[in-house]
């Protein structure tokens, strides 16, 4: 499989080279890093408390004191938005880990063991037949709403997307001669899957994981907006938009800023995912460089 071969040869240097050459990608990665930094060090970056209520300063427009303005309780919006980033980015990341873990297992089993492939494939199809948000809401209401159920629910929703990619790549890799060579040497099946198949299907999985990160942030915001996500005391981008929509006439910034953060983070992730795909797929690499 020349794709993985190229990927291995170029390694991270090739990835970095493409990132550097494409300024859009450099910019989007910088933005993502900045968001992550703000989310992690929110308490340290912002002079305000996210929960301090000041009735006298409610619904103030953006100013030098309150950069993004204040909400209906006089809380500082900037602090709440970057804290919301902490929740959204973390839930997104955990969702990626969850769905990549189970999706990879499911997909490799389906792709490698032909006998269960039919079953795995039907399960994947059935899960993909549900609309994402609807399935997530159903799962969350079954699990009781909390941050961890959001992760589990979104993880389940996106598992089939990973599984499909893992299955398709496994189908290709299992036919390669080095898999037979390993079997002929008496390497146990679990080890073939782990040390020969998995590394060879990892590039498409990483790309898919990046896209799922973007979807998960969007879906988490949607769930919080609908009130089906994490509890409303915890600031999230979707939750802030939900609370702010009553004041859309008087204080539209309550929706602008969290909306902007959602859009920019999702867009940056998509760009990064595209770039990764270009680097890891040699057929597209020429365009990339």
């Amino acid at each position: 499989m020349s794709g993985t071969e190229e990927g291995a040869r170029g390694g991270w240097r090739a990835v970095l080279a493409v990132v550097w050459r494409r300024k859009v990608v450099t910019a989007s990665l910088a933005i993502l890093l900045l968001m992550a930094f703000l989310a992690v060090f929110a308490d340290w970056v912002s002079p305000h408390s996210p929960t301090a209520i000041r009735a006298a300063r409610r619904l103030r427009p953006p100013s030098t004191v309150n950069w993004f303005g204040t909400d209906e309780y006089g809380r500082d919006l900037f602090t709440r938005v970057i804290l919301g980033g902490r929740t959204s980015l973390l839930i997104g990341a955990l969702t990626v880990l969850f769905s990549c873990f189970f999706g990879t297992i499911l997909g490799m089993i389906g792709g490698y063991f032909r006998r269960v492939d039919m079953l795995v494939n039907r399960v994947i199809d059935a899960m993909m037949a549900f609309p994402d948000i609807l399935l997530a809401i159903t799962l969350i209401s079954v699990l009781r709403p909390s941050a961890s159920s959001v992760v589990v629910a979104l993880g389940i929703v996106y598992t089939p997307r990973v599984a499909r990619v893992a299955r398709a790549s496994t189908l290709v890799v299992r036919e390669l001669a080095f898999i037979d060579a390993a079997r002929v040497l008496g390497v146990p099946t679990w080890r073939i899957l782990l040390s020969h198949v998995l590394p060879n299907i990892s590039s498409p999985l990483i790309v898919q994981g990046t896209f799922i990160y973007a979807y998960a942030i969007l879906a988490e915001a949607g769930l919080s907006y609908l009130g089906a996500g994490v509890s409303p005391e915890i600031p999230t981008w979707g939750g802030i938009i939900n609370a702010g929509q009553q004041y859309i006439g008087r204080a539209p910034w309550l929706m602008w800023f969290p909306g902007l953060f959602i859009a920019v983070s999702v867009f940056s992730l998509q760009l990064a995912g595209d770039a990764l795909r270009d680097v890891m797929d040699p057929r597209l690499r020429r365009e990339a460089s």
Binding site: M1, T4, E5, A8, L176, A177, F178, D180, A181, A182, V184, L185, G186, V187, H196, P199, N200
Partner: peptide
């Protein structure tokens, strides 16, 4: 591998590229 070993036709793909 232990008692019977096998050599294949395609040396290009018989080794794991990674």
């Amino acid at each position: 591998g232990g008692e019977i070993a096998m050599i294949f036709q395609e040396p290009m793909t018989s080794l794991n590229p990674l």
